[in-house]
């Protein structure tokens, strides 16, 4: 098969796009969560640990007999709790967002691993749960390529799309969204309006962290159906890079995450295609290298929220 024919075949196949959307789903949650935090002025590097904790908590709840939606709620609450830790340390106390975020990642990851080991002291292979099944919506099947690709997706993917629409709407069209954006650009102006800068920022970090944790839960409850150590594999850091790439805009974040998923699905197919001619690690490196490349690409025109990583104290400017 020629290279061109291989590409045409791939891009025209529903199974490729179905894989792309599936791979993109955890990133959709992660990038949306990071975007909510950062638009309010707080960088949340706890994301990698929140992914891990969400993955573990959601999976454990279902493993212990809870329903899948309850599991998602448990994951979101877990994420919110770690988000609260990050928010309290970085917003009212104004500690370094970089170092605190790394600390939250180490804390959330170690607590998740510890809890997993306590819950399952002696297991050889990670126990599986019955995951979310495809949500076959009848009206989709008539659309070519994209229809079947979407029909193969599970409920959390649709939840991610819905959350994107909701967050985009809230940010662009509501007083709350305006206040959130303002608190990331010019907190003094928000205070002058009589709104609480700290309350808004804490709320945004807690909500954003809950959304991030859903991305982790997708891994254990829809993709791999079990919890493994180091299963998040840097997806959180990739989301932080994607947020910069998307210029903190929900629409671009959605497209960016989907493109990233498509690229990842593509490299997986390519890996099959070339067989053992190229070491597998070369392909596995690509997502990380692509994230760095994306950061370099937008570096010159990155339009950071003006007050990102700048702590705010009442009466100071």
């Amino acid at each position: 098969m020629t290279n061109a024919a291989f590409l045409v075949d791939l891009v025209g196949s529903a199974s490729f796009w179905s894989a792309a959307i599936r791979i993109a789903t955890p990133l959709l949650f992660g990038v949306l969560g990071a975007l909510i935090c950062e638009r309010a002025g707080v960088l949340n590097l706890g994301i990698e640990g929140i992914f891990t904790a969400g993955a573990m908590a959601g999976w454990l709840a279902v493993y212990l007999g809870a329903g899948l939606w309850t599991g998602l709620a448990v994951a979101a609450l877990t994420g919110a709790a770690f988000g609260l830790v990050h928010a309290l340390l970085t917003v009212p106390l104004g500690l370094s967002q970089h170092v605190t975020g790394i600390g939250v990642t180490l804390f959330a990851t170690s607590l998740a691993y510890f809890t997993y080991r306590v819950a399952l002291p002696n297991v050889a292979s990670p126990p599986r749960i019955e995951p979310f099944g495809p949500l076959d919506l009848p009206f989709l099947s008539s659309i070519p390529v994209i229809g079947p690709a979407l029909a193969a997706q599970t409920a959390p993917t649709w939840l991610a799309f819905a959350l994107f629409a909701l967050v985009a709407l809230v940010l662009a069209r509501t007083p709350l969204g305006l206040a959130l954006r303002a608190v990331g650009e010019n907190p003094a102006a928000v205070e002058a309006q009589g709104l609480g800068v700290h309350a808004l920022r804490i709320g945004a970090v807690v909500a954003g962290s809950a959304v991030m944790a859903l991305g982790g839960a997708f891994l254990t409850m829809s993709a791999f159906n079990a919890f493994f150590f180091e299963m998040t594999a840097g997806r959180g850091w990739i989301c932080i890079a994607l947020t910069v790439f998307a210029s903190w805009k929900p629409g671009r974040a959605l497209v960016g995450a989907l493109l990233f998923g498509a690229f990842d699905a593509f490299q997986l197919r390519l890996q099959h295609q070339v067989g053992g001619a190229v070491p597998g690690q070369v392909f596995l490196m690509l997502p990380y290298l692509l994230s760095i490349a994306a950061l370099i690409l937008v570096a010159r025109r990155a339009d950071y929220p003006k007050a990102l990583m700048v702590p705010y104290f009442k009466g100071s400017r």
Binding site: V85, L89, V99, T100, I102, G103, V104, L106, F107, T109, S110, L111, Y113, F114, R117, V118, P121
Partner: peptide, 14 residues
């Protein structure tokens, strides 16, 4: 579980 070490160290940082 020896993951308690990672937990103590992470909490020490915070």
């Amino acid at each position: 579980s020896n993951y308690v070490a990672d937990l103590i160290v992470a909490l020490a940082l915070l």
